[in-house]
Amino acid sequence: MHPVRKQRLFLVIALVVVSSAVIGLSVYSMRNYADFFYPVSKIVAGEAPLHKSIRAGGCVVPGTILSAKDRLHTEFVITDGAERLKVEYDGLLPDIFGEGEAAVVTGKLNDQGVLVASQVLAKHDENYVPPEVAESMTDTERHNEACKGMNYGS
């Protein structure tokens, strides 16, 4: 290789390495702000602010979904396997929201530690299964990948 070209090759490599390092370190330092939601444990541990709009992510604990009959009001509990958080929501739920499914809830924590939600999003997992295969699966297998094998306590 011609020495001038070799020199330019090193310059290009240096450009990529240095800029990647700068951007990579910036992204690394922002890692705590780049999360879309708080896991439930962090909220229960008091890391999330009260009365401010935050997002919480977790799996909907089976058997905890309570819907009011006379109005649009739902209560449920989400968990990350370690801690639990109660959610209240007056609004429409997405189609794939359900027991054992992952959900991301936007809302404000009140003094009782209940998340009063303004929006509930369902998180789909990476599994793509046709309906006939899904029917032959057991209840736990059918749950969201992120919620599989989770200890829901009693």
């Binding site: 800029s19 990476e126 599994n127």
Partner: peptide, 28 residues
């Protein structure tokens, strides 16, 4: 030069679903 500087974004996109809590699902 801009294209080369921006190249670091590609692995960031790829790994974003593993590094952070995202709404987007991980790789299928």
């Amino acid at each position: 030069v801009l294209a080369l500087v921006g190249m670091v974004n590609i692995p960031i996109i790829y790994k974003s679903v593993d590094w952070w809590y995202t709404l987007h699902q991980p790789a299928t």
